[in-house]
Each structure stands twice: as structure tokens, then as C-alpha cells.
């Protein structure tokens, strides 16, 4: 799936340990859930101050998936 590659590309560029990044995609009827796992020292890097980075990731992921008309949900697992 392209959106998974898209998300993976961004997350790997953000973190210090790209080989630890894991994304699990759960497809629903109306929404797609992306479950993201990163190395624990990298969690802050994908969330950011006040969730600024996580919010930005959600925004552009929504744009990337817009064509399909689905909604996305990005869960960051600690």
C-alpha cells in the first residue's frame, strides 16, 4: 500500500533508529488505522512538543489518502 510507504518514509527520516520503525495497517470500511511503533528514545521525535509533529504527520497523511475518500487514524504505540 502506497500510504504505508509514504508514512514509513516520513517516520524513518524523523527518527534516529529507522530500522526499529514498524507500521501496522488496519483497514476499516470508512477509516484506515495506522499503528506506529518506534524505538522508545524516538517517541518524542514523532510526537513533538504539544503533539506538533504528530499533528503534522496526520495532516499530510490525510492528504495522501484523500483520493480514496477514507479517514485516517494514526496511533503511536509506546
Amino acid at each position: 500500500m502506497n500510504e504505508k510507504e509514504f508514512l514509513l518514509y516520513i517516520i524513518k527520516a524523523l527518527v534516529d533508529e529507522p530500522e526499529e520503525v514498524e507500521i501496522n495497517v488496519v483497514e476499516g470500511e470508512k477509516s484506515t488505522i495506522f499503528e506506529l511503533k518506534v524505538a522508545s528514545p524516538d517517541i518524542g521525535k514523532v510526537i513533538g512538543k504539544n503533539g506538533r509533529i504528530a499533528k503534522a504527520i496526520r495532516t499530510i497523511l490525510n492528504a495522501a489518502i484523500a483520493k480514496s475518500g477514507k479517514r485516517i487514524s494514526l496511533d503511536i504505540l509506546g
Partner: peptide, 20 residues
């Protein structure tokens, strides 16, 4: 698509690009 509603996508992309 890249600009998004009121430029939101472009702003987010700019933030991420800066950090990366």
C-alpha cells in the same frame, strides 16, 4: 492536494521538512 485546506497540508509539510 499538497496545499490542502487553507494551506494546512503545506504548513505541515514545511514543519516536517524543517525538522528532518
Amino acid at each position: 492536494l499538497i496545499i490542502g485546506k487553507r494551506g494546512k497540508t503545506l504548513e505541515s509539510l514545511q514543519l516536517l521538512t524543517n525538522i528532518i
